[in-house]
Design a protein around this nucleic acid. Sequence first.
DNA 1: GATATTTGATATGGTCCATAACAATTATCA
DNA 2: TGATAATTGTTATGGACCATATCAAATATC
Lengths: 181, 181
Amino acid sequence: MTVSKTAEKSSEKPADTAKGRKDAAEAQVQVQGPGPAEALQLGELSEQLGYVLKRAQLKVFENFLRCMASLQLTPAQFSVLLLVDKNPGRNQTEIASTLGILRPNFVAMLDNLESRDLCARIRSTNDRRSHILVLTDKGKAVLARAKKLVATKHEARLNELLGPSNREALLGMLSKIANEF
Amino acid sequence: MTVSKTAEKSSEKPADTAKGRKDAAEAQVQVQGPGPAEALQLGELSEQLGYVLKRAQLKVFENFLRCMASLQLTPAQFSVLLLVDKNPGRNQTEIASTLGILRPNFVAMLDNLESRDLCARIRSTNDRRSHILVLTDKGKAVLARAKKLVATKHEARLNELLGPSNREALLGMLSKIANEF
DNA sequence: GATATTTGATATGGTCCATAACAATTATCA
DNA sequence: TGATAATTGTTATGGACCATATCAAATATC
């Protein structure tokens, strides 16, 4: 489905700014079109769930990043902090796998969070191979602020756009797809 | 939010296969947990729209690829074929930008489709800088087969899972997010 | 106690996304 | 008209994310 995340800087295109088709002598090929903007026809594309799903996901992530700009947290990082906080005493493999992150890719991510003093790896005494993950005090504080930002800026915007009951319904359907598809 | 696309090969994890905690002498730290699987607590994560949205999107794309395996079409490629078919006479910039693809990244994509004889670049006579995009006969045939596969295997599965009216509602809400968020 | 498994880690390659820059062509306008 | 600016497709390049193989240390298994 494509759909990049270009941050929508300008206006997505100059849009051909009505310059007339050459002169105006061959009014034959373009019997219909007057010539102004001419947006493309999406056709069946706007009915393709995958296409719309991807576009929506990009918009949501984009908004999430804006809301979290002050804390410098990506969606993935936020999910790690949330999960570590709710599941104390778990190791890297457990946290990573429930988030769908492969262990090798989780290493750099933790290096980042640890370097910012948001979480820490603690060598387990039971199994000295594994690292128990915990949030630092700063990590807990940042998570608390992040939750507030998400609730008041991010999710609130969605309630405003869809209404609370629709938002619930949307979440339910997406969960169903995520779990049973 | 994370959520990789590991194709769900095995079962996401061996899950700790109930081996008993060491011996069974320190039934004190683990007063509650008997010891079997112990799935992690998702907590607020399952209420985060971004998280659920991303997981659902990955599942949908994954299923799309399976349905299209015989045609070897990715979601992005399918969207290009659809858009070129519905909008004859458009150039690369126009097609790419409406799909959210940056022009530089669209080149390799077109090289691929053209090498498979699914579409062709035609030097425009009006503006010799631009390439008009068209589907070849093979491209049209493949697109037709792709549409059938999507309708009968992919989207049908969603109707089965959500019901037609819910599917419509879902699409509407996602469109709203994609366009107005 | 020998062998297999698990954990965190490194190296590596692939894909996708984003920016800068360029040649050819066209538009602008002094 | 002719100099300058803008546009189109393209290449090169770097970053982010994803996936696999492999390793040493530690543990489990038999």
